[in-house]
Design a binder for these strands. Sequence first.
RNA 1: GGGGUAUUAGCUUAGCUGGUAGAGCAGCCGACUCUUAAUCGGCAGGUCGCAGGUUCGACCCCUGCAUACCCCA
Length: 513
Amino acid sequence: MSRQEELSELEQIRREKLHTLRENGIDPFGKRFERSHTAKEILDQYDEIEKEQLDEQGIEVSIAGRMMAKRGQGKAGFAHLQDQSGRIQIYVRQDQVGEQAYDMFKLCDIGDILGVTGVIFKTKTGETSVKAKEITLLSKSLRPLPEKFHGLKDVETRYRKRYLDLIMNPNVKDTFIARSLILQSMRRYLDERGYLEVETPTMHSIPGGAAARPFITHHNALDMRLYMRIATELHLKRLIVGGLEKVYEIGRIFRNEGISTRHNPEFTSIELYEAYADYKDIMRLTEELIAHIAQDVFGTTLFDYQGHQVELKPQWKRIHMVDAIKEVTGVDFWPQMSDEEAVELAKKHNIPVPPGAKYGHIVNEFFEHFVEETLIQPTFIYGHPVEVSPLAKKNEEDPRFTDRFELFIVGREHANAFTELNDPIDQRQRFESQLLEREAGNDEAHMMDEDFLESLEYGMPPTGGLGIGIDRLVMLLTDSPSIRDVLLFPLMRERTVSEQSDEEADEGIMEEA
RNA sequence: GGGGUAUUAGCUUAGCUGGUAGAGCAGCCGACUCUUAAUCGGCAGGUCGCAGGUUCGACCCCUGCAUACCCCA
């Protein structure tokens, strides 16, 4: 079947129009166009000015955008052009633009991109508009856009064809602009305070710095197995060893895990390390950074997230994990107890016990199971058990716990931070117990990283480190219910063309592995 | 991995207890030089996600598959 036969009726008509335009000497995919104003600039500058005054001044402007609505009236017509800033109405009269240009305008479809030069005026209903003197076709649209009134609703199409979503749903654009502004504000805040933005490899020979399954890839020339990074931590700490004392990296992290409203296989994190600081310094930095971004970008620290009122103004609540568990469940993990006693407590409270679970794992399970979802207002939970914190320094007074915190808002983890473990001998033991967990079947446990250990053996200053999930932060600040709403192109399952090609694809993957 | 819901024209959708699919927008032809979900007259557009099954007859019932969303682990 030829491509031509597959075209819908609407597409065929638009291709015929393309042909007609060319026959009349009009390039349907035009050239550069110099704009004097965006739609919003015109509305901002001239909306308040009186109709008569505008007519007297005869202000000429050039605008460009996608035609989103068209109302023909015989030898004249109105249309709305949409650019990144918004929409503005144009008024096209045959006696102003000439017969040939008007014929071209009549041939234009919704979705076409036009350039217009003309004069600002007010219609009799008071809408600030541009009366065209010249009208140019900048790009012909060969496919019909979704419906003008209801827009594009189908979530699958919205994610797969984000450009349509951006054209049709203005609040989507707002969300992604906000995302960009949040990142700008974050960088500015840190840069002004002497933090150095760095870039470290996304391909690692040993995936480290987090408990997660990696993606595996392969370098052909070196015939080397490589992993997509699951964290930036271990490289950034090497930089601290190297004497870069305040560093951060904003970058993509890859984790080979399921997909949900809160998880995408690739996401963006910021990790930050500061020499001679500890987790308490990082706590203050975290709340000040996030509150600053909120104020800077949105002008407020009070947010509504899916019906929850959240106040981001510091100082935020701080509570030890064991106290938080005690508060919610009444179970007290402070007294010394054996691993067996902890497991008994878990069984009593119907908490699933992972094989080989120790005291610290049980404490963590209790927290995740009972406490997490109750933490709506920003809360620093600190003092994580050493068993679940292989890269954090032990607490001086109670070595069962570490000097670590996680930030929770609306029941979700938003940040993870600790006083970094800088004792290479202790770090080696932590890796060794992680290896035991791996052998016991936990494929998220850390691998031994000799190169990183070697760097620690040269001496790393006491250091505070931080990780924030950028996507979740953007979700919170833009009231987005799903991570897919803050990712321009979330990962979607491949659409199978036919069953046969699907099987072939499967076989290809088998050979690789 | 388990459960639920959805998939009908380019888009947004209706479709009763099984009787052979209806609309709005967009589109096409015509009218219209201040319209704005423009209006008026006419026209066209459907593999009802895919593959089987039950039935005289399936958009509707059953099975499998695909994709998406939600909940649970």
